[in-house]
Design a protein around this nucleic acid. Structure first.
Lengths: 339, 339
DNA sequence: TTGTAGGCGTTATCAT
DNA sequence: ATGATAACGCCTACAA
């Protein structure tokens, strides 16, 4: 009894001997439908293998039941893990997630926003890496796409925003190294430090932690990765090993970089933690299994994912509510790399 | 001049002083439109911030321009990397990718298929981990959803299929260890070995490589991970270290497992490669940066992604063509873990 | 080259 | 409780 091609609600209605609206009412259990009618409809659905047409529903209702999640790359361990959590959390609320990739560039972030509108997504959780995408964001919210921003904050503070504990986390990481007796603590950060970015905030955390303990941050101990990749981090590890600056501790801006740096140090025969201690940021799944296992700042990822979903849903409910700002709680996880 | 709410093609037409169809024709550059009209339309689009409504287009045309990609989890390094490549390749062909997660269970795989139909996806690239989802697949293709299968092959061979070089790759990995002088080579695999799965095929590769060299595979050297996670692999590493079997080489079914095993060995003071050599499978991005860097079977991931996209596009073109079968080329990458 | 009519599958509204 | 009707925004077919 399986019909080839498209089976519509109408087909189901005929099969069940009811009207299209009754089928629709059963599916969405909107109004009271008599038990017999409901039963016949459900049987007809099973028999025909009917699947609702999301395009038609979305066109008619204006809602797609899909929320976008735009991240730089899903292949990145951090964003891959985060996407998984968001997908699970959204499903709990009856929503589906569509993953977009921005490549961490403004063009990609703008494109993700445009794409979300085209696809009639009900909202967008956007992990921002640039500030340049802001103007397109503003235009978009004016046109009614609810947005929650992660990572970089828009300067005007007009969006719901969930951030990592950048300053406090980096400060705690730095303090951890100081407490262990490290005297020459380097920091590995990225990009330029003019604007207030994730890099800047983590760097600031490092600096204030040192200053709080009466240590003058040495500009020579600030290493900039030339690219935010494992390879970029590895060569930064080489530079640190070759620097002759007597570095005995490293605060890395994230775990990928930390592991790349450790790998680079190892290339030069520098052992972690024996010769130098290293701490990361993010607590990606691989961190606990790296050799040496990686000490790191561990933000509550589940909390972050749940908060992002909660915010986007309430923003969809009430587009005009004032924007809200949250920072994830964190803990320092001590592992072998700072033993 | 930015209008709030939904801007339709009609609004653009009015703004430009033309008919809706002219706007549609400009957007899809279908027929010849006079330069002046086209210019006015483009200006109106820019001015209004118009975005085409994908739901309406999809409803009308029956095509969404979106291809589904169903993988177990995007947080997994292998699938995250693979998703990235597929997304990039699809974009090159003007298609968008929607990522689904199956959790590597039959229920999830079936659900992904149903979801793809609901969402009017033009096709589905499905990374299969189970055989149970097969019946639902068959029903689906009958209803016109083009499918390309990765990973597990459906027993009936009714789908386009791209596989990893499981047997040949595992055999080459094993041969590599033999050539290095390993005498007691263990294999770490998963699940039961009754059906022909990825596990079975890689295990078979290991076995035939040994037999080809006149070595009798010792059943005691076959270790089964109780869960396909880093933690499961780590505890397998413990078991290998504690086994007292004199293992001097390990063929792991994939890189995640290989790294987990190395971590577990390290927990027991077994050094890789000094005390024991380990080789993985997949060449995930992290493999080259692990300590020790991981020797592994490196399938051509880009080839695989490109082939999957190529197959799904041609399947969309011609739903009735006979199914095709491809296996990715590979190379053995020698790194520190087998030095 | 441009415009008009109709329908894709669903649901809101109103009527029975 | 159930059904008829119209409309969501776009595109195919045809007409001008």
């Amino acid at each position: 009894m399986v019909k080839r091609g498209k089976i519509t609600m109408n087909d189901v209605a005929q099969l069940a001997g009811v009207s299209t609206m009754t089928v629709s009412n059963v599916i969405n259990d909107r109004v009271r439908v008599s038990p017999e009618a409901r039963e016949r409809v459900l049987a007809a659905i099973r028999e025909s293998g009917y699947q609702i047409n999301a395009a038609a529903r979305s066109l008619r209702s204006g809602r797609s039941g899909v929320i976008g999640l735009a991240v730089p790359q899903v292949g990145n361990p951090y964003f891959g893990m985060f996407a998984e959590l968001v997908i699970a959390e959204a499903r709990r609320h009856g929503y589906h997630i569509a993953v977009e990739q921005t490549g961490a560039v403004a063009l990609g972030e703008t494109a993700a926003v445009a794409q979300s509108r085209r696809l009639q997504l009900d909202g967008l959780i956007l992990s921002l890496s640039t500030a340049e995408a802001e103007s397109s964001l503003l235009q978009t919210t004016e046109q009614g796409l609810p947005i929650v921003v992660l990572g970089e904050q828009d300067p005007a503070g007009r969006f719901d925003h969930v951030s990592a504990p950048d300053e406090a986390g980096a400060a705690a990481a730095t303090a951890h190294l100081v407490d262990l007796g490290c005297k020459r603590i380097a920091v590995v950060t990225g990009g330029n430090l003019d604007r207030l970015t994730m890099f800047t905030r983590r760097y600031n955390g490092y600096r204030t932690a040192l200053e709080d303990r009466g240590i003058r941050p040495d500009p020579k101990l600030r290493f900039i990765v030339d690219s935010l990749t494992r390879e970029g981090a590895r060569s930064t590890g080489h530079r640190i090993a070759d620097s002759g600056l007597g570095v005995d501790g490293v605060v890395a801006l994230n775990d990928i970089v930390a592991m790349g740096v450790i790998r680079g140090l190892r290339d030069r025969g520098v052992a972690v933690p024996d010769d130098m201690r290293v701490i990361g940021f993010d607590d990606v799944p691989a961190a606990a299994y790296f050799i040496p296992s990686l000490s790191t700042v561990s933000p509550d990822h589940e909390w972050k994912a749940a908060k992002a979903v909660e915010l986007i849903l309430s923003r969809i409910e009430d587009p005009l509510a004032p924007p809200r700002e949250y920072t994830a709680p964190f803990a320092i996880v001590r592992r072998e790399s700072t033993a």
